[in-house]
Write a protein that binds this DNA or RNA. Sequence first.
DNA 1: ATGGCGCTTAGTACCAGGTACTAACCCCGA
DNA 2: TCGGGGTTAGTACCTGGTACTAAGCGCCAT
Lengths: 182, 182
Amino acid sequence: MVRQIEDNPFLTDEDLARVLGVSIQTVRLDRAELEIPEMRMRIKKMARESDQKLRAIAGSEIVGELLDLVVGQTGMSVLEVTAEMTLQKTRVLNGQYLFAQANTLAVGLIDSDAALTGAARVSFKRPVLKGEKVVARAMITAKKLNKYIVRVLSQVKDELVFIGKFMVFDLSEEVKKLENSP
Amino acid sequence: MVRQIEDNPFLTDEDLARVLGVSIQTVRLDRAELEIPEMRMRIKKMARESDQKLRAIAGSEIVGELLDLVVGQTGMSVLEVTAEMTLQKTRVLNGQYLFAQANTLAVGLIDSDAALTGAARVSFKRPVLKGEKVVARAMITAKKLNKYIVRVLSQVKDELVFIGKFMVFDLSEEVKKLENSP
DNA sequence: ATGGCGCTTAGTACCAGGTACTAACCCCGA
DNA sequence: TCGGGGTTAGTACCTGGTACTAAGCGCCAT
């Protein structure tokens, strides 16, 4: 029963009774025993949680939690590695999260409404595991016209796990032009 | 009313009646008019969709949908850009999605249980907008011991939007050693 | 003023998917 | 034979609705 509900939380007691070959009352009794809430509560909880996670992962402008930011100079963020971020086989953090953390930090550093990464060189120094906290530090190292070079170093405790060099372009002028010619 | 429901889909008709200062019947009538489903259906839909998206973005081993894969040789995936993937200000696809699509494809190409990206050079050729479909093609271009070089080209229609060169390491031997010495 | 129309509200019957509780049944072992 | 444990049936009640009927109010035109 636990299995059925886990891989399909949308089943009503009636559905469960049918697939398990018992009566509805038995299903309810067992649910009470196992402290499994009713279907409506299950999906309500799901809706809340996965929506929240979705906003955190996809919707946010920055991956990780911003610890410090001096626009135009330096920034720092921390990312706590959860199970969903890791590769199933190896339990190692999928590299794109380190990239995303560094990239969002690099872009966030630029004092502009429209900054975009044009290119990047990144290096993954050692695998990062579930539960570890990755602290990324970024600083602008050069600026030429609307092109910025941002360096990002990410560490777990005092160990370097990632280095990245991002070329970020401030496209706010171009965007303004586009908006003025619709 | 549309606003209230959009930023809190969990409101019952009773709640809505209270905050809008009208009767429940009016709320129901207006919902019918606007073709807004009842709260239970709203959250059921949310639960299904955001859970699905969550799996697609965070849980899955590959970002985008795999179109073709010849392990050890080439692979191809497509990613459809949705609103959540874009930067709020510019409506442009956040670069890490292109990186993630390419990276997962590159890693997936390696015939190993434990392949990890060691380094990458990436270049974003032009901004990608909401609704566009990004097709990434990857191929292994070199192999030296347990180190693979994978090139990835991503296009929207016939336009190049991303180029990446990934150095991927097959760590299955190292992992085996670790497992044998706990 | 009278009627008609739109919007709002009240009320009722009914439904799904439950909770909570009582009562009965069957089997199995001391 | 008696007593539990697990299962089932049944009933009353709850929430958050749908679907439908009917009534009230303001307002405008005739």
